[in-house]
């Protein structure tokens, strides 16, 4: 969650890419070849585990080593594509993260509007509290959350877990949403006000359409974060039929013997695919790279 506060792109500023630098003509230097080789070596180390997963999922060997398979097979995917292993955990993940993202996005839009538009004595303290909360380790509050959920009978409840996920993503959501909203000029809004529109009408009809890219970024980011979250559902949900994919990867890993790694790889790929796709959409939307640009000036 601490990623949160760094990403404060303003809609006005385009994400910084390396463009201005690469345009400059550089003298070819002997050092450049060394740099390229060095970077490729690092990439190789980085890609090995990923490559292993891809190979293991279609290999007939079931080996921990990265080895060329004798034959390619889709048996592993066949074996995991059933209700218990794949469809239900994925559906649970979708329900949990989908609804939680919806709550986070709607609530942060509502909260961002007064924070971005009105001046009040409470505004600064509130914003600092939000920023401070983005840094708090959510892991540390999970035990008290568990005790609290036991007392109010919310343990093993999908709606309860959804609300907790939504609340834990909220500081980040509000902060990011407010930054985007700050980038929407006041002029249009004032025109609508003069025509007699109320604050909420202005927010939904004028401000939101102008910051659609910002809303998309917050939505995708929130969803990716929740999709990968393991600890929250691991603590708050108990029944096997309610567990999301993040927890089922873990139980799969601990429940089976070594002969199942092909299947686990296949399942891991299926489980990771949505967030990888979403990230690709996000990075394309922000013009390559990542919208961290402009965020950490100083």
């Amino acid at each position: 969650m601490a990623v949160a506060a760094t990403t404060t792109p303003k809609t006005g500023t385009t994400p910084v890419t390396a463009a201005p630098r690469t345009l400059r003509r550089r003298r070819p230097r002997p050092g450049r070849a060394v740099v390229n080789v060095l970077l490729l070596a690092v990439s190789l180390v980085y890609v090995l585990p990923l490559l292993w997963m891809l190979v293991a999922s279609v290999s007939n060997l079931n080996s921990f080593r990265l080895a060329l398979p004798d034959a390619l097979t889709l048996d592993n995917f066949d074996a995991v594509l059933n209700v218990d292993t794949t469809y239900r955990p994925m559906l649970n993940s979708l329900l949990l993260c989908g609804f939680a993202t919806l709550v986070t996005v709607v609530v942060s839009i509502l909260a961002a509007y007064p924070l971005s538009r009105y001046r009040s004595r409470l505004r600064r303290p509130f914003l600092y509290t939000i920023l401070f909360s983005t840094g708090l380790p959510i892991t540390a509050v999970m035990i008290p959350v568990y005790s609290m959920f036991v007392q109010v009978n919310l343990i093993d409840s999908m709606p309860g877990t959804t609300l907790f996920l939504a609340a834990s993503a909220l500081p980040f959501g509000i902060w990011l949403m407010k930054s985007f909203m700050d980038g929407v000029p006041l002029v249009l809004e004032e025109a609508a006000r003069i025509d007699g529109a109320g604050a909420m009408t202005v927010l939904w009809r004028v401000v939101l359409p102008l910051m659609r890219p910002g809303v998309v970024v917050v939505t995708i980011f929130t969803f990716i974060g929740m999709w990968g979250n393991f600890f929250v559902p691991f603590i708050l949900l108990l029944s096997p039929e309610k567990l999301p994919a993040s927890v089922s990867v873990f139980t799969f890993l601990s429940a089976h013997d070594q002969t199942q790694y092909g299947q686990l790889s296949a399942f891991s790929i299926i489980y990771s695919l949505p967030v990888v796709m979403l990230y690709l959409i996000l990075s394309r939307k922000l013009g390559g790279g990542f919208a961290l640009g402009g965020a950490l000036k100083g």
Partner: peptide, 15 residues
């Protein structure tokens, strides 16, 4: 490596 879910990263590193 960063975008992959935490548990998947853990599994890959375990392997």
């Amino acid at each position: 490596a960063w975008v992959l879910p935490e548990v998947v990263a853990g599994y890959l590193m375990y392997a």
